[in-house]
Design a protein around this nucleic acid. Structure first.
Length: 491
RNA sequence: GUCCCCAUCGUCUAGUCGGCCUAGGACAUCACUCUUUCAAGGUGAAAACACGGGUUCGAAUCCCGUUGGGGACACCA
């Protein structure tokens, strides 16, 4: 009941076909801020550039946001009190606002052709003067304007920038920022095709949708004065601003395609968990102030504050993302990993894709400290899903000796006699066999591992044998003896 | 070029508005440990306040400048 307005924030992407990880972070910070303050998180689509229209981009965007767990309260499809939330469906609203600026003399019509503007800019660049619109159309007589309108000459609406104004504003992250209005161009607000530019649409919508905090990327910082002026012209109170530092490529340029993956979907496809990606991206520019680093979404909501967002750009370091993926994966209960493993299995190129839950759970237990991704269960321990097709050359060289086949035969004999062997039974059998042969257990352990898995690394041998089971173990050892005895085939 | 923003280990960063910082943590790297292998775990090492001036008894922390990096300068967002 007290005067504090309810927090309303928006994530306002333009639908270019995929969600950029930088966009994911912007969305996340907006989301966290809203949830933290019991506010509203709005999704608004800024599709005012018809030349960049991408089929299905909206659906894709919503799908990815939903996957990440960033549910919006108002927006396209879902609707809300300020619908529509897609700018291309709000053209009339922008037209009216542009009209009112025209009437109050804060804006004017510009009939210049793109060609003329292009030539003008070139000229300005050549003379090394700041490239700004030369205000040709501001000097038009009312009769001339009338004439052009009569003839149906297409025009854009330009904002008339005041001269000599010092525009100062407060940014939650950057503190005080000051820009001279002389630097500002007479920005086009309404394009000749009737669509608004970002600046007009953004300001109008933020006001109409009662946005209290504009949280967006730093690339917008230098546009704020234009926006402030617009709010002023309309007689509106501007929202609070928070400009986030940029996400950078390893070479410190603005994160972009070409230097790796930038689409959230790329990371999803590679097997990153949403928990890890969200956690990682949250830490790029923000930290809780203590030493904790692994967070779930609810924990982030609890801890988040814009005041703790840093000012400098952050390089997207995939190594740390991998580590977070590992951390989040290992925190998941076996049952959940099991479900993901099954999915991974059915998508794999394995011949056999169906396994008992109990069997898979054993695999999960044996491998969970050794994998970063769910798909690693298959890639790092394929032998749990199919018999080895070849044996690692290096390991073979190191562990497989001339006398090995005979020794393994003894081990096979020993375990053949076992009834429903447990882990420990394999261990006892191996130790006894080694003892009988008068050799160290290692002389058997390594060849057995190689025989059943084809590799030199993995979980404890007895775990592997137990998981594979007696019959399969014997089969694989015999097969290895057969294949590796003649000559010394390495691959 | 003009304007704006930024500046602590290779990377993400702590550093609550000057003293407790001989600069802390994490990832990555290396070593040791554990161990039948590989991981995980444990222990430890190496690794940074861009530079120059101030202000102050005292500066990573405040001010100025330099350098470096980035962003914005469209009828794209």
């Amino acid at each position: 009941m007290n005067g504090k307005p309810k927090v309303r924030v928006r994530f306002a992407p333009s639908p270019t076909g995929f969600l950029h990880v930088g966009g994911l972070r912007t969305a996340l910070y907006n989301f966290l801020f809203a949830r933290k303050h019991g506010g509203t998180f709005i999704l608004r689509i800024e599709d005012t550039d018809r030349t960049r229209y991408v089929e299905g981009a909206l659906e894709n965007l919503i799908e990815v946001l939903t996957w990440a767990g960033l549910d919006y309260d108002e927006g396209p499809v879902k609707g809300g009190p300020f619908a529509p939330y897609v700018q291309s469906q709000r053209l009339e609203i922008y037209r009216q606002h542009a009209q009112s600026l025209l009437e109050t003399g804060k804006a004017y019509r510009c009939f210049c052709t793109p060609e003329r503007l292009e030539a003008m800019r070139k000229e300005q660049v050549r003379h090394r003067v700041p490239s700004k619109y030369d205000r040709t159309c501001l000097k038009l007589e009312p009769s001339e304007i009338e004439g052009k309108l009569q003839q149906g000459v297409p025009y854009a609406v330009r904002m008339k920038m005041p001269e000599g104004r010092r525009i100062r504003f407060h940014d939650i992250i950057r503190e005080e920022v000051e820009i001279l209005s002389d630097q500002l161009d007479d920005q086009v607000l309404l394009k000749s095709d009737g669509y608004p530019t970002y600046h007009l649409a953004n300001v109008v919508d933020d006001h109409l949708m009662e946005i209290t905090h504009v949280i967006r990327g730093e690339e917008w910082l230098s546009s704020v004065p234009k926006h402030i002026l617009l709010y002023e012209h309309f007689g509106w109170q501007p929202p609070k601003f928070a400009h986030l530092p940029l996400l950078l490529n390893p070479d410190k340029s603005k994160l972009s395609k070409r230097q790796g993956d930038v689409a959230v979907e790329d990371y999803r496809a590679k097997g990153y968990l949403k928990e890890a990606l969200i956690n990682f991206v949250a830490l790029l520019g923000w930290n809780p102030g203590d030493e904790r680093e692994v967070f779930t979404l609810p924990e982030l909501i609890d801890e988040f504050s814009l005041e703790r967002v840093g000012k400098s750009g952050a390089i997207f370091d995939i190594k740390k993302l991998d580590w977070l993926n590992f951390e989040h994966l290992r925190r998941k209960p076996d049952s959940q990993i099991l479900a993901m493993l099954k999915e991974s299995l059915s998508a794999s190129s394995l011949e056999k894709k169906e396994f008992d839950d109990a069997y898979l759970l054993n695999v999960v237990g044996a491998m969970r400290d050794r994998v970063v991704f769910v798909k690693d269960f298959i890639e790092k321990s394929p032998y749990f899903f199919q018999a080895p097709s070849h044996y690692e050359r290096e390991t073979l060289k190191k562990r497989w000796k001339r006398e090995t086949p005979e020794q393994l035969k003894k081990f096979v004999e020993a375990i053949s006699r076992l009834e429903r062997p447990q882990k420990e039974d394999y261990e006892v059998a191996l130790n006894r066999t080694a003892e009988a042969l008068g050799i160290a257990p290692g002389k058997l352990i390594h060849p057995v591992r190689l025989a059943v898995s084809g590799m030199g690394a993995g979980p404890g041998l007895y775990d592997i044998l137990f998981i594979l089971g007696k019959d399969e173990t014997i089969r694989r050892i015999k097969s290895a003896i057969e294949r590796l005895s003649k000559g010394h085939p390495s691959e």
